[in-house]
């Protein structure tokens, strides 16, 4: 249902006009030509195939067998599915605001006339480039392991502990959230751009009216930035629901310890490629589409209360 909202945005602000005759069918066909060809030849097929497969038992090595709603019935009583939904929801609820907040704060810090902004920006963006590499898996262990850097630093301030933060089922997800927050580069760049877009005249006007820095932030910066925050939020939610690589490389694809980092797509992947149950994995994928679609729809619904669009 989010789709209705989203497509309304795409259609532009053409309330009454949209009901008129659509005169642009032919040029649209030309401009959308490549996409249409791609959609029909490359995407619709596999997407329909995955929908069809969700009603089958498909082990990749043999032809798929139709099993009706078996896969969906199995979902109702699948403890690992429930666990993965819990893990993913928690992850999305904490890491999305966390990452956006980190990105926003740094963007604000970097926005004003500061020497070396270019270098800082590049430095802060670097983690995003590395976020999914094998090296990070290794490194995360070095930092949050039992003998890791984090515990060493705790030791320096007098807290001595032998806990392995990535190995303990109550903290492992926390380290992954931290890993996500740490790759704040992309949203930061977008926030920075949003801040740059705010006309300086507004700040000047606010200063003349005697507004202090905080008041300026509250009445000028924040309202004008909400569309950008919203944009980042929607994308971050879609992306974190689909989070896979980080959990995969840090836990070796197992969701360990005790399934505490069993992200939804990781479980889907295990079922599809690990256990050769591609039919069930396809059913899981469609459940995900429904969940993410609903989450996006809710975001769009709330946006009318807090996002300030310019006329």
């Amino acid at each position: 249902m989010s789709i209705a909202e989203l497509s309304r945005m795409a259609r532009g602000r053409g309330g009454p006009k949209a009901r008129q005759k659509m005169p642009d069918n032919k040029p649209a066909l030309v401009f959308l030509g490549p996409w249409l060809i791609g959609a029909i030849c490359l995407m619709i097929g596999p997407i329909i195939a995955s929908l069809v497969l969700s009603f089958t038992n498909y082990n990749l090595l043999q032809p798929a067998k139709f099993v009706g709603f078996d896969n969906f019935i199995r979902m109702l009583s699948d403890p690992r599915l429930r666990k993965s939904l819990e893990v993913t929801s928690l992850y999305v609820l904490i890491s999305v605001p966390g990452q956006l907040l980190a990105a926003l704060l740094l963007a604000i810090l970097l926005n004003r006339g500061l020497r070396g902004v270019t270098i800082y920006r590049a430095a802060f963006y670097l983690p995003s480039l590395l976020g999914s590499s094998v090296a990070i898996a290794v490194l995360w262990r070095q930092v949050f392991g039992a003998q890791g850097l984090f515990n060493a630093m705790l030791g320096m301030i007098g807290i001595h502990t032998e806990i392995s933060w990535i190995g303990d089922s109550s903290t492992a997800l926390g380290t992954l959230i931290l890993l996500h927050v740490w790759t704040f580069g992309s949203p930061m760049v977008i926030f920075l751009a949003g801040l740059r877009q705010i006309p300086t005249e507004l700040y000047e006007a606010a200063t003349t009216d005697g507004a202090n820095a905080w008041q300026q932030f509250k009445s000028v910066t924040m309202p004008l930035l909400t569309p950008i925050i919203f944009f980042n939020l929607v994308l971050a939610v879609i992306n974190s629901f689909a989070s896979f690589t980080q959990a995969f490389i840090v836990s070796g694809g197992t969701g360990a310890p005790a399934d505490s980092t069993l992200f939804y797509t990781l479980y889907l992947y295990q079922e599809g490629f690990g256990s050769f149950r591609m039919g069930y994995a396809s059913a899981l994928a469609w459940l995900l589409v429904i969940i993410v679609g609903a989450a996006t729809a809710i975001l769009f619904w709330t946006s009318k209360f807090w996002v300030h669009y310019e006329d």
Binding site: G145, A146, Q147, I166, A256, P257
Partner: peptide
């Protein structure tokens, strides 16, 4: 044997990162 959390940390590690190799 090491604690549960420390075990969990290395259970999927490659050979180079196992406790025997790293001297733990």
């Amino acid at each position: 044997a090491p604690s549960a959390s420390a075990t969990s940390e290395t259970i999927n590690a490659t050979l180079d990162q196992t406790d025997l190799v790293t001297g733990k």
